[in-house]
Amino acid sequence: MEWDYIEKVLPLYGKAAWLTLRTGTAGILLAALTGLLCAAALHWRVPVLRWITSAYVEISRNTPLLVQLFFIYYGLPKIGIRTDPETCGIAGLAFLGGSYMTEAFRSGVEAVDRIQEESALSLGLTRLQAFLHVIFPQAAAISAPAFMANVIFLMKETSVFSAVSLMDLMFTAKDQIGLYYRTTESLFLLVSAYLLILLPLSLLGSLLERRLRHAGFGT
């Protein structure tokens, strides 16, 4: 291991890590938003929209992210939709993550007993109030572990971005190995960078879960 080399290329990895974190976060946020909307469409059985949602969930879950990225990056331009690599990565992650988030939120909402909603309605709350104040808080607590697992899973999936020439961590490491044959150093930097991003995320996840448990959920 040559520390001089590591010191020299460190800024390169810093830049790449920032890109991974940036695109990953954006993709995950969009995935969560997609998941919320889809879960709502399924829960309230919105006509037509729920069929589209179901179809989307199946397509998204049963194709690999790499294929989805290729479709967006090389396929969509053929019908006139051109994206830069970063937008493509974020869109791909949102497309894949949306279905996982849908399932996480849906399982949470479904785990709340129907009679809880009836209890809220019989107190004179509107449907929306019952959802916001009674169902959603309980569903969120139930969904939290699945949600955090998805966040970590999606952050790791960003390593596929290099395939659409995004200069992320994976791309940088492969590039360095190809240029200088510094395999050991490059892989060391690669692993370290991912751990630096993901370990705090995991920690945040377990803290969140503990907090929710202590809030008195689950009778």
Binding site: I115, Q116, E118, S119, A120, V134, P137, Q138, A141, A215, G216, F217, G218, T219
Partner: peptide
Amino acid sequence: VFQSYELFPH
């Protein structure tokens, strides 16, 4: 008032 109370657990 319901048989199973239905207080809001959160």
